[in-house]
């Protein structure tokens, strides 16, 4: 199985492919509208020297933009999720549920929380599909 260096464009492409290929996702996310940016805080001790900003966009079961961006673009998203590298790694490895991380304050969300709660199945499916990507993490590669 091909491995992808985590938090890179090729890794995002692999993730996007998983989502786009999921019939289950298409059904669950049929009402979802809007973009989510993900900010991974820098952690030089784990080979993440600078923050990583990712912009992802979804529309009624389709996946649209999915790219590494700059800080300014990340701020334009409908939902902005931020967290330390170690926390994102736990989420990507399915060691920590994203909703639990949010409630415990280990990830931060900016955006309409009621929309997220109503669409929590969509969020969880996107994360589930991320965990299917064979990831080489920066501190493991």
């Amino acid at each position: 199985m091909t491995g992808y260096k985590g938090f890179t464009q090729e890794w995002m492409d692999a993730w996007k492919e998983k989502i786009a290929g999921s019939k289950e996702y298409k059904e669950i996310a049929k009402d979802w509208e809007g973009s989510v940016s993900i900010t991974v805080n820098a952690d030089p001790s784990k080979n993440v020297p600078e923050p990583v900003y990712m912009f992802t966009d979804y529309w009624h079961g389709d996946v649209r933009d999915f790219f590494i961006c700059d800080a300014a673009k990340a701020q334009e998203a409908k939902f902005i999720m931020t967290g330390d590298y170690a926390r994102w790694k736990q989420v990507a490895k399915k060691e920590l549920d994203a909703t639990k991380a949010l409630m415990q304050g280990k990830l931060k969300l900016r955006g309409d929380l009621t929309y997220i709660v109503r669409n929590v199945k969509t969020i969880n499916k996107v994360i589930d599909l991320l965990t299917e990507v064979n990831t080489i993490f920066p501190d493991e590669g």
């Binding site: 949010l102 409630m103 304050g105 931060k108 969300l109 929380l113 009621t114 709660v117």
Partner: peptide
């Protein structure tokens, strides 16, 4: 103010 749990309770 920083708690997502508190925000969810306030909103819903």
């Amino acid at each position: 103010k920083d708690s997502a749990f508190a925000e969810s309770l306030h909103l819903m």
